[in-house]
Design a protein around this nucleic acid. Structure first.
Length: 425
RNA sequence: GGAGAAAUGGCCGAGCGGCUGAAGGCGCUCCCCUGCUAAGGGAGUAUGGGGGAUGACCUCAUCGAGGGUUCGAAUCCCUCUUUCUCCGCCA
């Protein structure tokens, strides 16, 4: 949610900035709803004030034993007017809120112009894609040699799921473990364990609702809980409705969770392999920071994710998303893309965003700024560090050998227990 | 799953339907006093919103959440949520 003032006082400027994202703000509609809201709110509050005053007078008169009937008669119609005014106000506020809740965050000024992912700007590259003196296998063929099975998963559940057995299962666990240890021990994050099902309010807080319900899995029982699409939701909501002290910031959390996405609208995309699944593992980094620190935090957090790729000796590039491609709640996003030799291209493996106060406003996460009386909204920054499934893909594809064996990078060996996943049979 | 109890400000804890945004205590901030410390005295100390110039000031909402009764609700009624105790079940 944007600051309501952006719509009251700087409406045209806000519309101009949103246009960079390809969002056309209905300025006239907002302005008229806003005018209506103001008039109704003032009227309602006047009526309420009058009611309070008169009610107190009745109480006092009664205490003195005076006849209160004339006073009661005087307020006879007040209740109805108040109810009417209140109802209109609620109605207008609802309309306004429904509209504004669907407005995305403003892109930061450093975000490049552009309409789609084709306009994203590559900022840096790390590592050199190896050249192979044999025909590289993609992760599906390679994984099949070591315990990755999509058909079994299709039998158990359906498409876009996988089973892992033996070395592949262990590799996924090793990767998650390695990432958690790096972030919690080297990068200063506190490891957290969170619910994998959340209520609607949590999803509203981080911005997945109300707009993107179709991307989510929802339970059908009375609870109506949703499976988390990312740990960002439960982890960020840990601080919902809190006022944090200066010393508590920055809050830095890391969590490893499965993520569930319906991938509605992705029919036909990435149908082969592990790239786009309904269920996948991810290690997520979340920071709650002071507003003035959030862009530094974004750089640092992105660096933490990059460290993982570097330790795993995986070539990647860093891309800044253009205004037209950044996510709904984000003001600025970096994507990290790992090199996949079989696809001969870079594929997203991490997405790191600064949401500024957009989520914090919905979540009511604030902090006590010493130099001002009122609490101030904090900023939230998060990113994948990394998507574990895709990391597994990157790892086996990049470190494969001619015979189908996979070399485990040094950093991961303590977690894998072996130097090489041997070619079986 | 069954039976009971509870939910009030940073914390503890009062609160006959009207003078309670809320006593009292603790904590915290500032001031006074004391050579320092401790003790003592005084003042202040919730959050969100609206109007107004992002001023003075005015005003509304909030006592777990949502409804209701009433001229008026922290206080009465209903629903829900959470917590605690006991029983059952269970990884």
């Amino acid at each position: 949610m944007l600051d309501p003032r952006a719509f009251r006082q700087d409406l045209n400027e806000t519309a101009t900035i949103l246009k960079r994202r390809g969002v056309i703000l209905d300025v006239d509609k907002i302005a008229s709803l806003e005018a209506e809201r103001k008039a109704l709110q003032v009227k309602t509050e006047q009526l309420q004030s009058e009611r309070t005053t008169r009610s107190k007078a009745i109480g006092q008169a009664k205490a003195k034993g005076e006849d209160i009937q004339p006073l009661l008669d005087a307020v006879a119609n007040l209740g109805q007017s108040l109810d009417e005014a209140k109802a209109s106000l609620v109605d207008v506020q609802q309309k306004l809120n429904d509209y504004l809740a669907g407005v995305p965050n403003l892109p930061h000024e450093s975000v490049p112009d552009g309409e789609s992912e084709d306009d994203n700007v590559e900022l840096s590259k790390w590592g050199n894609p190896k050249s192979y003196d044999f025909e590289v296998k993609d992760h599906v063929d390679l994984g099949a040699l070591h315990g990755m099975d999509f058909e079994k998963a299709a039998k158990i559940t359906g498409s876009r799921f996988v089973t892992l057995a033996g070395p592949m299962a262990r590799l996924q666990r090793a990767l998650a473990q390695f990432m958690l240890d790096m972030h919690s021990q080297e990068h200063g994050y506190t490891e957290v364990y969170v619910p994998l099902m959340v209520n609607a309010q949590s999803l509203y807080g981080t911005g997945q609702l109300p707009k993107f319900e179709e991307d989510l899995f929802k339970t059908q029982n009375d609870f109506g809980y949703y499976l988390i699409p990312t740990a960002e939701v439960p982890v960020t909501n840990m601080v919902r409705d809190q006022i944090l002290s200066e010393q508590e910031l920055p809050v830095k959390y890391v969590a490893h969770t499965p993520c569930f996405r319906s991938e509605a609208g992705s029919a036909g995309r990435d149908t082969r392999g592990l790239i786009r699944q309904h269920q996948f593992e991810k290690v997520e980094l979340v920071q709650i920071v002071r507003p003035e620190d959030s862009y530094d935090a974004l750089e640092a957090l992105t660096g933490h994710a990059e460290t993982i790729l570097q330790k795993l000796e995986l070539p990647y590039r860093k891309v800044v998303l253009c205004a037209g491609d950044i996510g709904f709640s984000s003001a600025k996003t970096y994507d990290l893309e790992v090199w996949l030799p079989a696809q001969n291209t870079y594929r997203e493996i991490s997405s790191c965003s600064n949401f500024e106060a957009f989520q914090a406003r919905r979540l009511q996460v604030r902090w006590r700024k010493p130099e001002q009386k009122k609490p101030e909204l904090a900023n939230t920054v998060n990113g994948s560090g990394l998507a574990v499934g895709r990391t597994l893909v990157g790892l086996i594809e990049n470190h494969q050998q001619k015979d189908g064996s996979i070399v485990i990078p040094d950093a991961l060996r303590p977690y894998m227990g072996v130097d090489v996943i041997k070619a079986c049979d």
